[in-house]
């Protein structure tokens, strides 16, 4: 598989195409749709899987960045998603109505334009929060030079505390963004596309391309990749690893928060446990793509999204996370370094 991917990349380079994550995503979607044309697979499920994959991708790419650069499994990543979703709820459901900004059903979408105002604000807030948590908790552990598992353990504590906080503020019941019911688009082959899904996919594509540009073109992006490669060498090269860590959190948490908001829009509800439940697909995508490889996580996300949706054709839909888990275990068994073989095992 890894060799195949390399061959494809080399061929692409030779015919003058730079192989970017945008190409990768297009290739994945094309392959996924091809799978959908198989007679025993329902196209509708494949399409749903692509939408789900887009949300998983945002979460997983952020998770793998943190994993690669800070070298620990951030158990609280799912709860950063939850925080993003609830902060947005606070803005569209409480803050904005106070100043008379209300609305739902923007164009074909269920949500209103206030959500578009709230999204960047909430994302910025979560990013800032992640940097603060890093200063309070993780930096002190890094300075002490503790084992990475202890850092993961601390992130479990952060995850629990964050979920408690969400429940204290908003309670444990189902919440919703202000929404209008909207007609889904009916396409051939029994494919139903909710308009919101188009919004979700568009946001995901924009963010992934933006991330690619940051990592590939900016000094900080290159420094992040360098630090993921070899933290000690980054230090003696004079790379400001403090800023690298801060930017990693800003970007990782921003992607997580966006994923949380999009998830809340897609499933049309919020629950305090929504992010925690998403951890398994997120980690499965990260492991599939190889830890620390954002483009790998992208591929992994779509594989997990499509596979777990299509699996519902044969098995009980509530086993979807178990399917993601099974894929991850299978991957660990055959290729622990991920599809592309570059990750760390």
């Amino acid at each position: 598989m890894g060799r195949l991917v390399t061959t494809i990349q080399d061929t692409a380079r030779r015919i003058g195409l730079a192989w970017t994550p945008a190409h990768t995503s297009v290739a994945i979607v094309v392959i996924a749709l091809a799978v959908g044309f198989l007679p025993f697979v329902k196209m509708g499920l494949v399409v749903n899987g692509v939408f789900l994959g887009a949300i998983i991708a945002l979460g997983a790419v952020g998770l793998t960045l943190v994993y690669g650069i800070l070298n620990f499994a951030n158990i609280a990543h799912g709860d950063y998603m939850t925080m993003g979703a609830y902060t947005t709820l606070f803005i569209v459901g409480y803050l904005l109505p106070k100043v008379g900004v209300e609305g739902s059903g923007l164009g074909p979408f269920t949500f209103g334009y206030p959500l578009l105002i709230a999204l960047p604000v909430a994302v910025a807030a979560i990013s800032a929060g992640a940097v603060v948590v890093d200063m309070m908790v993780y930096r002190r552990l890094r300075d002490r030079g503790v084992n990475t598992v202890v850092v993961s353990m601390a992130s479990l504590g952060v995850a629990i505390a964050l979920r408690g906080l969400v429940q204290i503020i908003w309670g444990g019941d189902i919440e919703r963004y202000p929404r209008e019911t909207r007609q889904v688009f009916h396409l051939p082959m029994d494919v139903r596309v909710p308009p919101d899904a188009i919004f979700i996919t568009t946001v995901a594509i924009i963010l992934v391309v933006a991330l690619y540009l940051v990592l590939d073109r900016t000094k900080m992006g290159k420094a992040m990749r360098a630090t993921a490669d070899n933290p000690d060498l980054a230090l003696v090269s004079g790379i400001d690893t403090g800023s690298v860590v801060r930017w990693t959190w800003v970007m990782g948490a921003a992607l997580a928060a966006t994923a949380g908001i999009l998830l809340a829009v897609y499933q049309a509800h919020l629950l305090p446990i929504m992010g925690w439940k998403f951890l398994i697909p997120l980690f499965a995508a990260v492991v599939l793509g190889g830890i620390g490889n954002p483009y790998g996580a992208l591929v992994g996300a779509f594989v997990i999204g499509v596979t777990s949706e299509v699996s519902t054709q044969w098995i009980n839909p509530s086993y979807k996370p178990a399917v993601a888990f099974a894929i991850m275990i299978g991957m660990l068994l055959v290729r622990p370094r991920g599809i592309f073989g570059g990750g760390r095992s």
Binding site: F72, A73, L279, I280, P321, A322, M328
Partner: peptide, 10 residues
């Protein structure tokens, strides 16, 4: 080490 953590969650 952390693969075990993710797996136990699974």
């Amino acid at each position: 080490d952390d693969y075990l953590a993710i797996s136990t969650l699974g």
